[in-house]
Simulated assay, not measured.
Amino acid sequence: MGKLISIASGKGGTGKTTVTSNLAIALGKLGKQVIAVDADLTMANLSLVMGLDDADVTIHDVLSGDANLDDAIYSLPNFDNVHLIPAAVDWEHVIKADPRGLPEIIKPLKEKFDYVLIDCPAGLQIDAMSAMLSGEEALMVTNPEISCIADTMKVGIVLKKAGLAVLGFVLNRYGRSINDIPPEIAEDTMEMPLLGIIPEDRAIREGTLEGIPVVLYKPDAEGAKAFMDLANEIVRISGVKSKVMY
């Protein structure tokens, strides 16, 4: 049985999509069958950073009843073991798709894949909650800034109360400022395990522009190594829903 993991945050711009794409490919490199789902129905970017330019059918079409789920699943031949369900970028599709249908669509994917990674909108609005509650576990993404950490902590608390197993958090883009919150302080504030530190790395930005996540674009880069470490940690702890981990 596969794992359903919501990639979530309290603020936009923390790098959830970058984490989702790189974690998907890193897990694929470990031999896992992975599908990444763009559940950000209004600000879809996952297909762009994973190099899929010609998606005729998207999750919006499935939600509106205009397509079957299998028609929205794309294999990514450049990325071993990785598939993608993209989202549309035009407003016509957005207004037709009801985000409350996401859990019904996404949850059955765990029958076919080892890992289902759900790229969720930020915050606690209905579209974000519908996406996040499509998962059974959650990986929080934050930046080393106090307001971002505080907001992401709040989302994590809500998800725990909703019954998700919050695996921990990723401290993304660490090292871009001398004022960054140190990892140990971030972990104390978040009150959940710190699972990975992704450094500020030019190679990550370059890979994003090329539509090739850094774990393949420059696998020897510090950012790529950090994502591989995160993937190994996710394999180690995912599927354990007991709150003993806290």
Rank of each mutant, 00 (worst) to 15 (best):
M1W: 00
I5N: 10
S6N: 04
I7E: 02
G12F: 03
T17K: 02
S21Q: 03
A24R: 00
A24I: 00
L27Y: 00
G28V: 01
L30D: 12
K32R: 13
V37F: 03
D40M: 04
D40R: 04
N45T: 13
S47C: 07
G51S: 12
D53A: 13
V57I: 10
T58I: 07
D61V: 05
S75G: 11
P77E: 12
F79P: 06
D80G: 09
N81Q: 09
P86C: 01
A88Q: 10
D90A: 14
G101V: 00
P103E: 08
E104M: 09
K107Q: 15
L109E: 02
K112Y: 05
K112A: 06
K112H: 04
V116C: 11
L117Y: 03
M129D: 11
A131K: 06
L133N: 08
L133W: 08
A138T: 01
L139H: 08
E145D: 14
S147P: 05
C148W: 06
I149S: 12
I149C: 12
M153N: 15
M153V: 08
K154G: 13
G156H: 04
K161C: 04
K161M: 12
A162N: 14
L164M: 10
V170P: 04
N172L: 06
N179F: 13
N179V: 06
I181V: 15
I181A: 13
E184M: 10
M192I: 04
L194R: 05
L194Y: 03
L195H: 08
L195M: 07
I198A: 00
P199V: 02
A203M: 07
E206F: 00
P213K: 04
V214H: 09
Y217V: 01
K218P: 03
A221E: 08
A224G: 14
A231Q: 10
R236D: 12
V244P: 10
